[in-house]
């Protein structure tokens, strides 16, 4: 079974409503992870504020954090880091996991005009 791990920054709430602007990415991302799990992937999501042991136990993750806290969130597939600093979209997750993209399309990782995707 493929394993997907997400190492999130310490967040007050996983829905992001505590930020100065709603972050639809966070809410959509949670829904996307649910979809990924339904495709038979084992999903583990760790919040630095709540599950620091998961971070400390992974030297590659600690190394990334030492390079800068902006590396969070870190996403790993079967123990290999596949992205840093972004919550991937459903299509991107599907690609990293080798799944057929499907279901409801989701927001991309950032606003369209920023051009980072």
């Amino acid at each position: 079974m493929t394993k997907l791990e997400i190492y999130d920054p310490a967040m007050c709430c996983s829905t992001g409503v505590c930020g100065p602007e709603v972050d639809p990415v966070l809410v959509t991302f949670a829904a996307d992870l649910k979809w990924v799990a339904e495709q038979g992937v084992a999903v583990h999501r760790y919040n630095l504020g709540q599950e620091p042991q998961a971070f400390a136990a992974n030297p590659a993750v600690v190394k990334e954090m030492e390079a800068g806290m902006d590396r969070l969130p870190i996403i790993a597939v079967d123990g290999h880091i596949v992205s840093t600093g972004v919550h991937l979209s459903r299509d991107q997750l599907a690609a990293k996991l080798g799944l057929a993209a499907g279901g409801k399309p989701t927001a991309s990782c950032c606003s369209p005009k920023s051009g980072c995707c």
Binding site: C18, G19, P20, E21, D23, D70, C110, S111, K113, S114
Partner: peptide
């Protein structure tokens, strides 16, 4: 402090300009 962290998060991590109102 939360907003400060959120600002850093939005600016550096997501690199979006749109999400943070100028006033904030």
């Amino acid at each position: 402090l939360l907003l400060d962290a959120a600002e850093a998060y939005h600016r550096e991590v997501l690199r979006t300009q749109a999400d943070m109102p100028d006033a904030v």
